[in-house]
Structures are given as C-alpha cells and as structure tokens.
C-alpha cells in the first residue's frame, strides 16, 4: 500500500514539474518563434498594429527577405559587414592580449602581480558607462569618431577575459615551462608554442564571449558612430525602429538574419559557448 502511494506521489510530482517547465519553455521560445513569424509577415501592418495571433496562422511570404536581398537591403548588408569586421578583429586582438596577461598573472612570480590582479577585479566592478563621456571626448580630440578603431578600443583588453584566462592558466603544468626553458625556448616561445596550445578550450570560450559582446554591443557604438555607412547591426537596426520609418521590411527580416552567426556559433561550440557566457562566475 505504502509503496503504491509513493509511486503515485512521485508520478504526480514528475508531471507537475514537466507542466511547469513546459510553460517556462513556451515563454522562452515564444518571442523567438514570433520573430520568425514577424519576418514572414507584412511589415507595415506589424509596425502599425503589432503582432497579432492571426499572423501565426495566415499565409506567410518572403517579401521582407526579397527586400533585404534586393537594392533596399544595401545599407543593411553594409552594417552586417561592419559588425563582422569589428567583431572579427576584436576577437583576435582581445584574445591575443587578454590571454598573455592572464597567463602571466597565473604562471609567473613578479613584483606587482597581486596589485595588477586587484586592478583587473576593480575594472570588472566599475561600470563602463561612468567612463564613457571622457572616452568619447578622447575619441573626439583624436578625431577617431566614426571609425572602427573607436568602437574597438575600449574592448581590446577585456578584464573578464583576463580573469578567465588567469583562472584557466592556474591549472596548467608549470613543469612544461621549465623543460621548454632548458630546451632553449624564449619566454615568448614558451607561451606561443607550448602553453597557448594547452589553453585552446579557454580561447574558444572567450572567442564566443568576446564575439557575442561585440556583436551585440550597443551604447558605445551608438556614441562614436555617426554616419549610416559605419553603423554596426544593433545601431543600424535601432534606427529603423521608429514609428516614422519606412524600412520595416528590412527591420524584421534583418533582425532574424542578425542572429544567424550567433546561432551557428552556438550550434558548433555549445560547450564553449556556455563556458564563455558563464565565465564571470569562475572562482579562485
């Protein structure tokens, strides 16, 4: 009797849990599905009356996508290319510099090491928005406004990445450095030829973190980019999001297409993706 009661109780809990999470999953996925539905629906109606439930069942067409791949889409693809270039260069530069710093903080003993590490943590805590006006002024006085360089500069040495690379490097075998030294390797050779290859998983995680944050970065590019031709995707798409616009086809089709690179990265590097996004929490 008791056994049977227990089985029934466990079954009920199991069903309740599944019902609860089905609702949560539905809430999570609904806007993503809605985004695709919106891209396949008449754009001006959407902007006028919003997304209606009828749209989920009406006949879809590819007019928005035809527009974006046609002559109207030229500007959009320009933003896409800007975003790709900026994110690509940023990933390479920030991985290169941040990994060196994190590696040195973990595996060398030198004066000021603790102090530098404290600085890394301090910058992690200070909101970028506080420094944004002076940095903006600096960009103006160097006449860097409206350039890729201005967008990238504040992100090149990312404290999160330095922190993550340090934590990762702490687990690397120090003996390898010693034997490489015996073999006559320079200190830089040790890093690039011996140790960096061992850090590949952390490079993958940080490539995704840096890629995602620069791909989605908004406020700083909004400040330093002036001409439409230089806009990144989020800044460009945001300009279309006005009640007085006439490019809503580009807005909806473009929103869907702007997530494509991230989805591809996610599908290929799921494990690293999650490590990258949750990297702030590594303890040590």
């Amino acid at each position: 009797m008791m056994e049977k009661k227990k089985v029934v109780k466990e079954k009920t809990i199991s069903v309740l849990l599944i019902v609860l999470f089905s609702i949560v999953a539905l809430i999570s996925l609904f806007p993503v599905i809605a985004l695709v539905v919106a891209a396949l629906s008449p754009a001006s109606d959407l902007m006028r009356i919003g997304l209606t439930s009828q749209l989920f069942f009406s006949s879809w067409d590819f007019q928005n996508f035809e527009a974006i791949f046609g002559s109207e889409g030229t500007r959009y693809w320009r933003w896409y290319v800007n975003s790709l270039i900026i994110s690509g260069i940023l990933i390479i530069l920030s991985l290169f510099f941040s990994s060196m710093v994190g590696y040195a903080l973990a595996l060398y003993d030198f004066k000021g090491k603790r102090f530098i590490f404290v600085l890394v943590l301090l910058i992690l805590m200070i909101p970028f928005e506080i420094l944004m006006l002076p940095l903006f002024r600096m960009m103006m006085s160097f006449q860097l406004i409206d350039s890729y360089f201005a967008v990238m500069l504040p992100l090149i040495v990312a404290p999160v990445a330095v922190f993550f690379f340090r934590q990762y490097s702490l687990g690397l075998p120090k003996e390898l450095m010693e034997s490489a030294r015996v073999d006559g390797c320079t200190e830089f050779g040790i890093f690039f030829k011996v140790m960096a290859p061992l850090m590949l998983p952390s490079f993958a995680a940080m490539a995704i973190l840096q890629g995602l944050s620069s791909w989605n970065n908004f406020l700083w590019p909004l400040l330093v980019l002036r001409s439409n031709d230089m806009f990144t995707l989020p800044v460009g798409l945001a300009t279309l999001l006005t009640p007085y616009g006439n490019n809503y086809q580009i807005l909806f089709a473009g929103s869907v297409l702007s997530i494509v690179p991230i989805i591809i990265l996610f599908l290929f590097f799921q494990r690293f993706f999650i490590a990258g996004l949750t990297s702030g929490g590594v303890k040590g």
Binding site: S28, P31, A38, I49, T52, N216, F218, I262
Partner: peptide
C-alpha cells in the same frame, strides 16, 4: 530557456514591442 541569451537587446526588444503592441489587436 537558454536560447533567449543568443539574442541582442535590440532584436529581442523589437519583437517584444510587436508582441506588446499598443493596439487592441496586438498579441
């Protein structure tokens, strides 16, 4: 539940604006 993290605020906000449209007919 993780998938929304892949979107940017701008893209997610655009679709939220459509779902929470001001008209009575919005979802």
């Amino acid at each position: 539940i993780f998938i929304p993290a892949l979107t940017s605020v701008i893209v997610a906000g655009t679709i939220f604006r459509m779902i929470f449209g001001d008209s009575e007919a919005a979802f």
